[in-house]
Design a protein around this nucleic acid. Structure first.
Lengths: 105, 105
DNA sequence: AGTTATTATTCGCATATTGCGTACCATCAT
DNA sequence: ATGATGGTACGCAATATGCGAATAATAACT
């Protein structure tokens, strides 16, 4: 259970170990330890990593979270279509639409 | 940075500390330590907790990740309405429906 | 090639943290 | 009062962390 994605994410940003460590405010050897799997970040460091690399902790931990988003529950997730966020009314309208199509089956 | 949500999640399931520890295969005092903030789970334990409580590591760590889910991109997330997963056709239908309503504004 | 600068990897050590068992307290039922 | 259950806190052995320092490896430049 190591953080295999770190190296990939860092290289995508074209950062050196030192760059990355500086951005996190930790020692280079510490960050290098994370990538190599020799050491593990604290939770604080994990959160910083997720922020820095713009991803989730689950992603860094290699957890594919197949959580299903229930649309009838507002606030579970922000949805968008064509890069434009859905209003609550739009969401409710879409739910009604789907329910109707299902009933017509 | 403690795992404040644990207690809430456990109580929602009506489990005792012992129940929860048994499900995780760890000692009661160990799990109790997580809840009280006296101890912290390893990454392995964190993943087990997320699985057990059916949530994300980010959630347990108190990280609100405001990632917007773009519906036009399939595979970004599994959606459901009334606990029934949306088929791809339903998703596409809903997108068309929203686009139309938007155009009519 | 030789030299210097930058990047990456590994280790030792002091310190901090974990997980477990155990003990302790409170509540409730018999 | 006794026993069962749920919750809390602590001691200790074992392990893990973060840092600096030392050591490779690579790049850049004359």
């Amino acid at each position: 259970m190591n953080l295999d994605r770190l190296s990939e994410l860092r290289k995508k940003k074209n950062w050196s170990l030192q760059d990355t460590a500086d951005r996190l405010g930790i020692a280079k050897s510490t960050y290098a330890g994370y990538e190599s799997g020799y050491r593990r970040p604290s939770f604080e460091a994990l959160l910083m990593l997720a922020d820095l690399f713009e991803t989730t902790c689950d992603d860094l931990l290699g957890r594919s979270f197949n959580t299903t988003i229930e649309l009838t529950k507002a606030g579970d997730a922000q949805l968008s279509i064509d890069q434009r966020e859905l209003t609550d009314q739009e969401r409710i309208g879409a739910i009604a639409f789907i329910r109707t199509t299902r009933e017509l089956q």
